[in-house]
Simulated scan of single mutants.
Amino acid sequence: MMNDEQKTDKKQRLIRKGKKVQEPVNTQLVVNIFEGFTKDERDLTQAHMGAEYFRVMAWIKEEDEQETIGVRSFRGFHQFNERLVFPLDCSSYKYIYIELIKVHSRRDPATSKGTVVMGRAKIRLPPWTSRGKFTSKFNLVGLNSDRCVEIKGYLNLSMQLHRYLER
């Protein structure tokens, strides 16, 4: 004798017979960070004190924050060439948040770990139904010495939604 759950399951299978059954699909946001540039107005007023290293911090949900390795900067230009992958469990996420951080900064000894946020970006995610790769240059904003928001640099990156079946 079948219980009510088994009857419902059998009905669903009969209704779908002959049609392709949708299997659960997992979605990831794949972010490729290529290069970036930042300007630092403090560089003009202070002596150069050795190599500077930068890293990119990115997150969709704060608990899923990821970062690139630190790269050495050459006159404000940064070559990352790294991939970050973020699992997406629903389509309600709209933005990815990015910060470009200067690490081990000798010019900012008052910071607790020598890290300084050089610029930030809030970037809209690709449409949930998209299949293609989006590549663009995204501006990074920060505060200048007058405490006004200005463009501090940019990051070149691409984003793509990757869908796959879990087996």
Rank of each mutant, 00 (worst) to 15 (best):
R106I: 14
G132M: 12
E62R: 09
T115L: 05
K137E: 10
E62D: 07
Q12P: 04
E65D: 08
R107Y: 06
I60A: 03
V71D: 00
R107Q: 10
C90D: 15
W128I: 13
I33T: 01
I98L: 06
K19G: 04
K102N: 03
K10Y: 07
D64Q: 13
G142I: 03
C90I: 10
K10V: 08
K17F: 13
G50K: 11
D108L: 08
V116P: 02
E82V: 09
P127F: 05
K10F: 08
V149A: 08
L125I: 15
G76V: 06
A47Q: 11
R42G: 05
S145M: 10
G142H: 02
E82R: 12
S73A: 13
K7S: 06
F34G: 02
W128P: 06
E35D: 08
L140P: 00
D64P: 04
I15R: 12
D146A: 15
E52M: 14
G153L: 02
R42C: 06
I96T: 01
G36N: 01
F74E: 10
P24S: 12
R72G: 05
A110S: 06
Q6T: 14
I98E: 00
H104A: 12
H48N: 07
E35A: 12
P126L: 02
L88P: 02
S112F: 06
K113G: 04
G50R: 05
F54L: 15
R167V: 14
R147A: 11
P127H: 09
Q79E: 10
K61G: 04
L161A: 02
F54K: 02
L100S: 01
C148A: 13
V103M: 12
L140M: 10
F34T: 04
E35P: 04
A51N: 14
S112R: 09
E5L: 15
T129D: 08
L140K: 01
I98T: 01
W128T: 11
K137C: 14
E52T: 14
T38S: 04
K94H: 06
R124G: 07
L155E: 00
F138T: 02
F80E: 01
K39M: 07
E99K: 13
R167P: 08
Y164Q: 09
H162P: 04
S73P: 05
R124I: 15
D89K: 15
K20W: 04
F37N: 02
L157Q: 01
L44I: 13
Q160M: 10
I60H: 01
Q79L: 12
N81Q: 12
M2L: 15
P109Q: 03
T111Q: 09
F138C: 09
S130E: 05
L165Q: 11
K10R: 13
